[in-house]
Amino acid sequence: MPAVAARPLPTLFLAGIAMLAFAGNSVLCRLALVNTGIDAASFTVLRIVSGAIVLWLLVGLRKRARPASGNWAGALALTLYAAAFSFAYIQLDTGTGALLLFGAVQLSMLAFGLVRGERLSTAATAGLVLATVGVLVLLLPGSTAPPLGSALIMLLSGLAWGAYSLLGRGAVDPLAETADNFLRSIPLVLLLALPFVGQIRWDATGALYAILSGAITSGLGYAIWYSALRGLGAMQAASLQLSVPILAAIAGVLLLSEPLSVRMLIAAVAVIGGLAIVLKARASKIRT
């Protein structure tokens, strides 16, 4: 398999922009919940609605007809991901949340493969164990541990996104399917927000962050990513996503003055390093 560096510059540029967008979702959500008056439920609703609008506009601009390709299972997984993501970030730092989310997504997809009969090499197994230990290190009690409830909610968000990714495997038109699922998610996310009607609050800045998260870092971000994927192999795409928690953590430090604890650094090295070992081992297996 060719190395990522061998890919054409436009592909790498698009992939880099997409990774910044994915990290931007964590940054915008945390900024909104910490620095503005918006609540998590309102943020989620605005994100889903604005994302649906932009994705449908992008699909509509294409000069070819397409059948509706979303499904309610995908919409439910998307809704659970987005809602849990927002509520978890009420208390989690940007980098911690992104690491938990990313770790849960990748580990859940690896677990699915194991259940389906995939066999990992010794190196891949060691990497999987290392990544799992990294997540556990982050959750262990202590003065620098993230709030356990919020951490578990973010893990749920990651599991939901992993399920969404698995449900969308083999999609003929991933952008159209994502647009359909965002549209189907609107009534679901409104229903999910009903118990929080009495707590709804927002301001113009918070609403702007939510709309940017839906329209730009979600809607446009997914469109750019799907364009980049045409020039990337599966393992290369997965490897590039290793950068997202790092980018989110750096942004959290620069924009929100969040600290980087020794626990967070150890967990990040273990999770990202372990997953990198798994991806490298699986790529080597495919080549042979």
Rank of each mutant, 00 (worst) to 15 (best):
P245I: 12
S42F: 00
Y81S: 01
V105E: 10
A248N: 10
P195F: 15
W225V: 04
M19F: 13
I277T: 15
W225E: 09
L33Y: 03
G274L: 04
T94V: 09
G16Y: 05
V49Y: 10
A151F: 02
S261I: 08
L76W: 08
S165T: 15
I153P: 13
P195Q: 06
L232I: 05
L80A: 14
L20S: 11
A75L: 04
K285P: 06
A6P: 00
W202S: 13
T288A: 09
V105F: 07
P67H: 09
W72Y: 13
A228T: 06
S157I: 00
A131Q: 08
A145F: 15
I186L: 03
A126P: 00
L110A: 03
V27G: 07
A238G: 05
V278H: 05
L183Q: 03
I153G: 02
G142T: 11
S239C: 05
L191F: 09
L78F: 11
S239Y: 12
I48D: 11
G142V: 14
G158P: 12
F43C: 11
D203A: 05
I286P: 01
V129G: 02
L183Y: 07
S150C: 05
G142N: 15
G168Q: 07
T44P: 04
S121H: 05
F22E: 13
S243M: 12
A270I: 03
R184A: 12
L175D: 11
A281M: 02
L256S: 11
R169V: 11
L265D: 14
V115Q: 14
G273P: 13
L240R: 00
A248V: 07
F196K: 06
G219A: 13
